[in-house]
């Protein structure tokens, strides 16, 4: 099945930040094995999930992504021994920030995909795409809107500050 054939439905855009050694190679394997999957994901290759600054994710949404995938080596399998542990810790913290920004959690997918898990990569891609498709387009960080003006007759609240919402 290829959802992109249906032009009327909403086609989300997802940016994937993946490490070079496990997930990128796993995605290569999916290719070599000709595993068909949704065409909504664009991969940005990094050496290690440890290299991923949470601001990359914030930026991706700001620039119009509807969803983000972060994927690297399984715990204890990191090519660089411990980069993925640092990434995990960083993202645990980042999750609180996501809530503050008002991003529904379903827009961000964290997973481990090893170099031998082409099949799993396909699942991650299709599941994330389906989830984000159901959530609809991302239109700005709700948490960054200013609170409504309390006094009667006050001007309408500001729209979300620039960059995020307009698509």
């Amino acid at each position: 099945m290829n959802a992109t054939l249906d032009k009327t439905s909403f086609e989300p855009r997802l940016t994937a930040f993946v490490c070079n050694w496990c997930t990128y190679t796993g995605a290569d394997l999916a290719g070599t094995s000709r595993l068909q999957m949704d065409a909504n994901v664009r991969i940005v290759r990094l050496p290690c999930t440890g290299r991923i600054d949470p601001l990359f994710i914030v930026k991706a949404f700001e620039r119009g992504a509807d969803g983000v995938i972060v994927s690297g080596c399984h715990p204890a399998d990191c090519h660089y021994t411990s980069g993925n542990y640092h990434a995990r810790r960083r993202f645990a913290f980042f999750k609180e920030l996501i809530e503050f920004l008002g991003l529904p959690e379903g827009r961000i997918t964290f997973s481990w995909v090893s170099a031998s898990e082409g099949q799993k990569w396909r699942e991650v891609v299709n599941d994330a795409t389906a989830r984000v498709r159901a959530l609809g387009p991302f239109s700005g960080y709700p948490g960054t809107e200013l609170p409504a003006w309390p006094a009667a007759g006050a001007p309408a609240p500001n729209p979300a500050p620039g960059g995020g919402g307009e698509r």
Binding site: T4, T32, A39, R42
Partner: peptide, 24 residues
């Protein structure tokens, strides 16, 4: 830019695959 393993080999729809290849 990886438009084989990450694109042409995993998609069938020519239009969508071409759009993705351009992005990549």
């Amino acid at each position: 830019a990886n438009i084989r393993e990450h694109c042409s080999w995993i998609h069938e729809d020519r239009e969508a695959a071409t759009d993705k290849a351009i992005d990549l």
